[in-house]
Design a binder for these strands. Structure first.
Length: 488
RNA sequence: GUCCCCAUCGUCUAGAGGCCUAGGACACUCCCCUUUCACGGGAGUAACCGGGGUUCGAAUCCCCGUGGGGACGCCA
């Protein structure tokens, strides 16, 4: 196959935010397409009108965009096989269902939900795979049409051939579905809406999808879809079923496991690159041994289906956090600042009085402490006078024997610096000032260092004073000392 | 229950018959760096689910157990 013929798709149903499992599915599809120079298509599977909403679709699209997955065809961008929203392709499905009905490959079913449920439960209890018993198969076509005319609302069932199906799965290898695995299944609901297993086949075929890469939960659906391809005489696309993402209790990851939506991670201050990097490693590994941190370009370059892991994987939020921290440390500062701004604006910090360049410098000093962008306000507090105060962890330092002498000497040294050099205070300036304080106060070691730290930052811990002080300047440093000394 | 899939440290994984005394990462512990915190560096604890084969040789291949997961819908 010529590589540019490759066409893959991601087909979410818009019933909520994009969750991490879905995100990994998009990622793998997108990487596969980009690696091979193929096309990546987005299709909205909104045939379940009960649950699908336009709002959810908007959110999904937004999440996909945030993650950086550009699609070649899909809603909003269009394409040669439009429309890409199943709810806008209803006439198509009706036509193809009609073909099946006409060819005697499908029939009307008048069974009610209740009897179906009862039979299903009975079958399970009896130790059998529940499947349709063929009741309505006995109804003649003429009778069925008559009842339909009379106002009854039947579903349309596909006549499932009774034979074994073999699937050559791209990730699982040869999978055999026994002949009795599925019974006649519904392709059209009683309100005329088509059902998933039916639309996917029509759409994947019409949209010339070459590779269907999706989660393992769809593996057993595949046999139904193979039957449909066969009925239409259409060639099968290649299928690849990727293992599931599990929660800590090893069941399929869901909301009860905590944050599972991409949107939430975005809001909690995760970088998209970190999320992507974490997700790509959940079931796939780089061909370069021991390579964990990688750029998106490297993922595109190295991605291949044969390195997918068949075993399901547990989602570990702790490792995600670590990874996010790695990205924060290495991120371009201007960009990092831009992304951090919303978190600062939401916080109590009075950032209005500072320009972005100053904030960027401050952020640069504390970025090593961050695991998420949401941590930033907490670490940035030391730079803002309005929030400056002696923090609980620093109270004890005030009663150190050297405290008063050091604070006084520091004040004097800074005042001298102010008259000589003004408000500008460099790291080198501070080093000299520190020497002066040492001589003047007679303090040394922690006895010297801790009082200075406390009087300047209000904390017993924090980044190197040499890095903090230039951001403060002489006057503000002096004001802080004043506040501590006078208690005002 | 039936069918399908899966099985290496607590977790993510490397490993495609000898390179394995099983490697890396997260987490955890300790040490170093640091006049603080964090970062960083180093070290350590920790795994081939069990049983049978096949083979000179098995984490790797086969079978059977066991365990886990998924699907059995007029959801996708």
């Amino acid at each position: 196959m010529v590589s540019s013929d490759v066409r893959v798709r991601f087909a979410p149903s818009p019933t909520g935010y994009l969750h991490v499992g879905g995100a990994r599915t998009v990622l793998y599809n997108w990487l596969f397409a980009r690696h091979l120079g193929g096309k990546f298509i987005l299709r909205i599977e909104d045939t379940d009108q009960e649950r699908s909403t336009r709002e959810a679709e908007r959110m999904q699209l937004e999440d996909i965009r945030w993650m950086g997955f550009d699609y070649d065809e899909g809603p909003e961008v269009g394409g040669a096989y439009a429309p890409y929203r199943q709810s806008e392709r209803l006439d198509l499905y009706a036509k193809y269902a009609q073909d099946l009905l006409a060819g005697d490959r499908a029939y009307y079913c008048f069974c009610s939900d209740e009897v179906l449920d009862t039979k299903r439960e009975a079958a399970m209890k009896a130790g059998e795979t529940p499947q349709y018993d063929g009741t309505c198969l006995k109804i003649s076509k003429a009778d069925a049409l008559k009842r339909k005319q009379a106002g009854e609302k039947p579903t349309v069932r596909f006549k499932a051939p009774v034979r074994e199906y073999r699937l050559h799965d791209l990730v699982r290898g040869e999978v055999v579905f026994p002949s009795n695995m599925v019974g006649d299944f519904v392709i059209l609901r009683n309100d005329g809406m088509p059902v998933y297993n039916f639309c996917v086949v029509i759409d994947d075929h019409l949209m010339k999808i070459t590779h269907v890469l999706r989660a393992e939960e769809h593996l057993s659906n595949t046999v139904r879809q193979m039957m449909l391809y066969e009925a239409y005489g259409w060639p099968l696309p290649q299928f690849g079923h990727m293992s599931l993402i599990l929660g800590a209790d090893r069941s399929k990851l869901s909301k009860r496991h905590g944050a599972t939506s991409v949107h939430q991670y975005n809001e909690e201050g995760y970088l998209r690159e970190a999320l992507l990097n974490f997700l790509v490693l959940l079931g796939w590994s780089s061909p370069t041994e021991n390579k964990e941190i990688m750029t998106i370009d490297e993922m595109v370059r190295d991605f291949s289906l044969d390195r997918l892991n068949k075993a399901p994987s547990v989602f570990d939020p702790v490792k995600l956090k670590w990874m996010n921290g790695q990205y924060i440390k290495a991120y371009p500062l201007a960009e990092l600042t831009r992304l951090t701004m919303p978190f600062l604006k939401k916080s109590e910090l009075p950032i209005a009085g500072h320009d972005e360049a100053w904030i960027a410098r401050a952020l640069d000093v504390i970025r090593g402490n961050l695991e998420t962008l949401a941590d930033a306000p907490r670490f940035l507090r030391i730079f803002f006078d309005e929030t400056f105060d002696i923090e609980p962890d620093a109270v004890a330092v005030k009663s150190e024997p050297t405290f008063t002498a050091v604070a006084g000497a520091l004040k004097a040294a800074l005042e001298k610096h102010l008259t000589g050099a003004g408000d500008n205070l460099t790291s080198d300036d501070f080093a000299k000032i520190q020497d002066q304080v040492k001589v003047a106060s007679g303090a040394k070691g922690k006895g010297l260092f801790m009082p200075m730290r406390v009087v300047l930052t209000g904390h017993a811990h924090g980044p190197d004073l040499k890095l903090i002080v230039p951001l403060l300047g002489t006057k503000r440093s002096l004001a802080r000392i004043e506040k501590v000394l006078t208690g005002k």
